[in-house]
């Protein structure tokens, strides 16, 4: 066996730096994705057909294409058209935001639609307008429903950032590949890369389950 135990330690500084990028890109990307998702999610159940149609187009375009294609399109495709280059980090955050936004939009739509129609009627019958009823009655209840699938999407987006290694964003996967290619410690490096991803995804899953159980009770 060609095991080099020292490599497990040697790779760590590389991966620690990569992890930092991975976390930052995920948090900023998904945060923007939340804003995009809330907007398009509400648009997809709007009264006006044109608005609904716009939202559905966005959601289906994004959900129907692989994220790797989206990364390459944004990073190389669009700049080629305008003779302009994006910073890889910018592309990374933008793609994660746009991609997660589409999935979050579906989560938002599902959450709002899961609230009983009687809640809207009760609010409206008291004289609240549609917007007020949405804000004070429907939305707070819908958010509770949205938390578990949202947590899921967060974990998916975190793992999706690994594809940004193809455009040389110095995130976890890219850092691992760099170290592997100079040291040839393939097993040790990619083993540790997986461990580093699990260091975030497992706590995230535990937190998610805990939140779900608490929501079940209330």
């Amino acid at each position: 066996m060609n095991l080099n135990p020292d490599a497990f330690i040697q790779v760590m500084p590389y991966l620690a730096q990569g992890l930092w990028y991975t976390v930052i890109i995920t948090f900023v990307g998904v945060a923007i994705g939340c804003i995009i998702g809330s907007m398009f999610g509400l648009m997809s159940i709007a009264r006006f057909k044109v608005v609904r149609w716009m939202a559905i187009t966005y959601i289906e375009l994004i959900r129907g294409t692989p994220i790797l294609a989206q990364i390459l399109f944004v990073h190389f495709g669009i700049p080629a058209l305008f003779n302009y280059n994006f910073d890889p980090l910018f592309t990374g955050v933008a793609v994660i935001a746009i991609n997660s936004g589409a999935y979050i939009a579906e989560i938002v739509r599902g959450g709002v639609q899961s609230i009983d129609k009687g809640q809207m009627e009760a609010g409206r019958s008291l004289g609240l307008n549609g917007r007020q009823t949405m804000r004070y009655i429907i939305w707070p209840q819908a958010v509770k429903v949205m938390i578990p699938p949202f947590g899921n999407q967060f974990v998916i987006s975190l793992k999706d950032t690994s594809l940004l290694s193809t455009i040389a964003v110095a995130e976890l996967m890219y850092q691992g590949r760099q170290f592997a290619s100079i040291s040839f410690n393939m097993f040790e490096t990619y083993f540790m890369v997986c461990i580093f991803y699990l260091m975030i995804t497992i706590p995230a899953s535990i937190l998610l389950r805990y939140t779900e159980r608490r929501l079940d009770k209330s």
């Binding site: 009687g118 809640q119 009627e121 009760a122 609010g123 009655i137 707070p140 209840q141």
Partner: peptide, 9 residues
Amino acid sequence: FQHFNLFPH
């Protein structure tokens, strides 16, 4: 309403 429609939250 028949089904009350109180705000559960």
